[in-house]
Amino acid sequence: MDQPAIMSPETRLVEALGDRSIVLVGIMGCGKSTVGRRLAQKLGLTFADADAEIERAANMTIAEIFATHGEPYFRSGEERVIARLLKKGPQVLATGGGAFMSEATRNEISAHAVSIWLKVDFDTVMSRVRKRANRPLLQNPDPEGTMRDLMKTRHPVYAKADATVYSRDVPHDVVMNQIIQALTAKVLSMAPETARTNDI
């Protein structure tokens, strides 16, 4: 009698996800896009970057949208783009730093995805964002003060994500594997609930 094939943790996770996406949230520079690409490759899913999709839809860079139309216009477009992307699951979706602050976006993510907060400390994130000059919210005389304010405001909201993984200066695969572990624990803990709902 043939032994049943042993399912890999990655296959098991993707099966349990069904058509839900994996959404990475967190402050700019926490590694959502970099780690997200690796995670998608590891799980055999497509990867989408919300900021890149917004730029494509507007035919402008994020910085140009901010400068020309202002932040409220950008946030409105961001909500629409993320809602559209979430209909294409399963996938790994990296969101911009402010996206999860929108209640409408959080509701869409809750309905169609499992969210992971990539939490990062101040010194680590500042060393990363200093390497790139394209962060509109940091184009001011006190980027450190701005970052501290953003983290203070946003962390309590990011904490509403389904799970939290710490983004540190370690190999990306280490963080990626921790995300897979956190996702597996979360998704499999949700499975019995779904099963009971379907039985009704």
Rank of each mutant, 00 (worst) to 15 (best):
L138D: 09
M101H: 04
V92G: 10
V23A: 07
Y166G: 01
A67Q: 11
G44D: 02
N134V: 08
P141W: 15
T124Y: 08
R196E: 11
T164V: 11
G26E: 01
R37W: 07
F74C: 05
T184R: 12
T124M: 03
I65V: 10
E193W: 13
M190T: 09
G98I: 03
G89V: 01
S21N: 10
F66A: 08
M176N: 11
H112M: 07
Q41T: 14
S110L: 04
A67D: 10
S33N: 11
A67L: 02
D19K: 15
T164G: 01
K119I: 06
A67C: 07
G29K: 09
H69R: 13
L13D: 06
G26L: 05
D123Q: 15
E64N: 04
R196K: 14
K32W: 00
K32P: 00
L188A: 09
I27R: 08
H69A: 07
V23G: 04
K160E: 13
I179Y: 07
L45N: 04
V125H: 12
T184E: 11
P143G: 12
A83Y: 02
P72C: 12
T11A: 15
V35Y: 02
P4K: 14
E193V: 13
L93N: 02
D121P: 05
E10A: 12
K88L: 12
E71Y: 05
R128F: 07
Q91Y: 01
Y166L: 11
R130S: 12
I27E: 03
R12P: 08
Q3M: 14
L138V: 08
D2R: 14
D199N: 14
Y158H: 12
T164E: 10
V114H: 04
H155F: 10
Y73D: 12
A163C: 13
R80F: 05
V23F: 02
K119M: 02
M60K: 15
W117Y: 13
D51S: 06
P143V: 08
M7N: 00
N134T: 09
C30D: 05
Q139G: 00
D169P: 06
E15D: 13
M190R: 15
I109Y: 03
V165I: 10
K160L: 13
P192E: 10
N140W: 08
L118W: 06
R84F: 03
A63R: 11
V114M: 02
R75V: 03
I200C: 13
C30P: 08
I65D: 03
R37I: 11
K186F: 04
G26T: 09
R130C: 04
L24D: 06
P171C: 14
R84Y: 07
N198S: 13
F66L: 00
I116L: 09
